[in-house]
Amino acid sequence: MSGAVDISLGQLALASLLLVVALGASIALKLGLTRGLAVAATRMVAQLFLVGLVLEWVFSSENALLIVSLAVGMAVLAGHAAVRRTSRRYPQIWADALVSVLGASFVVTGAAVLGILQIEPWYDPQYLIPLHGMLLGNALTGISLSLDRFMEGAGRERGLVEARLALGATRWEAARPLFRDAVRTGLVPITNSMAVMGVVSLPGMMTGQILAGAPPAEAVRYQILIVFMIAACVALAALGVVGLAYRRLFTADHRFHPDRLRAA
């Protein structure tokens, strides 16, 4: 089986004509999206070319420090993006999201490249960067969903939480329903997508591998690996970030501080 057809710049220009469909709809229906579409499309092209350049550079360097720095940089962006999607915040939320996303993604990526795939060298960017990137995208969603749910619950169920505390509950007994609900919410998307994977949706990574010439059976194995990794990473990240948020809103002296929450 051969690799994919190389796409020339001329062919890309041809592909950009496909955008005319969306632009045409926007103009004809006066959706007011024309400018937005054009800007977004331009940004997408520029960002991807830039990422391509960075990756080419990092891939050819074979420098472990550089590769790990890239992975850390990606995680920082993911943590930041996760918090930006929340509707309430507390002062240390940025640090908490960052710690969770870094911890969860590095533990799981590490387990995969060192333990399961046993890549030599372990920092081979061909494996490390795409696996890590897939995890981050999902961890980001898991963190923002579970954090948002936890803080929303703490605000909405403030009276119930206080009632439990007033009746002698420890901070954990008072917060447990919120905690469980939040972690569950973070795990719903990956659970749902696993159930329909390959039937309703063809996963992007698998499709990409097949396009690049990999035998479908091999692409499927990678896909299964990555989905297990994603599930573990999302679970770790959601548990981690809700645990940290719990410690900010419920102090060790069993007091509840909903006043630390601010609308974003």
């Binding site: 505390l165 007033a166 009746l167 002698g168 509950a169 420890t170 002296d253 069993h254 007091r255």
Partner: peptide, 11 residues
């Protein structure tokens, strides 16, 4: 211990 205190002093 606040939980113990709150169990004794009920609001």
């Amino acid at each position: 211990s606040l939980p113990r205190h709150r169990a004794a002093v009920a609001y």
